[in-house]
């Protein structure tokens, strides 16, 4: 049983013209076995929340706290957070030239588990996980994200989710840019991970479409750097029909 507790989090993006506040008091709890959706319009800061949880150096936390099972997440380096059990499926994963997917995954698993995986079971595990996501076996020899299509990048992120088995996973707009077929494959991958583990999920999305495949327990509406409404799955249906207009208008008022 794990719990990620975010309390009154304020964060700014570091730019050449100074710091610009993006998160303005986020409070949120993600527990094992629950799926929490964060929905918000463009520019609301929901991806910033994902990056701040993971520890991206572009952002500074000005106040508030992030706690994972009693550990101070903000005091940890990026890799320490991952080893503590946090995972971020990225919206725009970067290319790493000259580093193969298999080498990358093996290096990561070795770092996370503290020892290199047994070669035979590792190769089998990786092949099975790739087959589940309908990925070609040749994928393992390609360089990380180099020349990947949008769908391949997202499948690669979900492949990592399954192999790394985090306690709490943040999925940042994993649905964006995917056609329906790719969305189904990726969603099935997330659901398999949910069934096989007791992890808590934080699903960040702009559209309700992905929530037809991955059922949320809680839906948060994120506007102007904070959560402005929280409800059950039915809240997503309201957003689907009415949009964010009422919330953004209220935030402006």
């Amino acid at each position: 049983m794990s719990r990620l507790t975010i309390t009154d989090l304020h964060a700014s993006v570091i730019t050449e013209d100074g710091d610009t506040p993006i998160l303005r008091g986020v409070s949120l709890v993600v527990e094992s076995g629950t799926t929490n959706a964060i929905m918000g319009p463009n520019g609301s800061g929901k991806s910033t929340l994902a990056y701040v949880i993971a520890g991206h150096p572009k952002y500074t936390v000005t106040s508030g706290s992030i706690d994972l099972d009693g550990q101070d997440v903000l005091a940890m380096s990026v890799d320490e957070r991952a080893r503590a059990g946090l995972f971020l499926a990225m919206q725009y994963p970067v290319e790493i030239p000259g580093v193969s997917v298999s080498n990358f995954l093996r290096t990561s698993i070795t770092a996370l588990k503290g020892e290199a995986p047994k070669l035979r079971t590792w190769t089998k595990d990786m092949k099975e996980a790739m087959a589940d996501l309908q990925m070609d076996p040749g994928f393992a020899t390609r360089n990380v994200n180099e020349g990947f299509s949008g769908g391949e990048k997202k499948r690669h992120e979900i492949l990592q989710l399954g192999l790394m088995q985090p306690k709490i996973a943040v999925l940042d707009e994993t649905d964006s840019g995917l056609d329906v077929d790719a969305l189904k494959i990726v969603s099935e991958g997330v659901n398999r991970f949910k069934e096989s583990s007791d992890a808590g999920l934080l699903l960040i999305t702009h559209y309700t479409r992905i929530l037809r495949y991955i059922k949320p327990d809680v839906v948060h509406v994120f506007v102007d750097g904070r959560i402005v409404a929280t409800g059950g799955p039915e809240l997503a249906d309201v957003l689907e029909s009415d949009g964010y207009e009422t919330y953004t208008a209220a935030a402006r008022a």
Binding site: A54, D79, A82, F87, I96, G98
Partner: peptide, 28 residues
């Protein structure tokens, strides 16, 4: 590229190992 380092570190890979991967990849 700081984004490369961030990506690798976010997968649990310590910074020194991440730098090593990127430089090896560059010269490979």
């Amino acid at each position: 590229d700081d984004e490369q380092l961030f990506y690798l570190q976010s997968r649990g890979i310590p910074e020194s190992v991440a730098r090593q991967l990127v430089v090896r990849g560059f010269f490979v």
